[in-house]
């Protein structure tokens, strides 16, 4: 596996995290920033819930 430059992956430190609206577990859309409601948050990208 070739080396990935992790520092350059995804939104940069200091930049606004982009808006994201995706379905949650009940199928209804979740707007990440609205759901956060002005609080700090962790956004975790993980491999899979199935395997």
């Amino acid at each position: 596996m070739t080396d990935v430059d992790f520092a350059s992956l995804g939104p940069a430190v200091g930049e606004p995290f982009p808006g994201v609206i995706l379905p949650g577990v009940d199928g209804r859309p979740v707007d990440l920033h609205a759901d956060r409601a002005g609080r700090p948050a962790l956004v975790v990208f993980y491999r899979s819930a199935r395997w």
Binding site: G14, P16, R36, L42
Partner: peptide, 12 residues
């Protein structure tokens, strides 16, 4: 796989 920590204002 990675984690972004966001400030209250939505910045990274």
């Amino acid at each position: 796989p990675g984690t972004f920590v966001l400030n209250a204002d939505g910045s990274v």
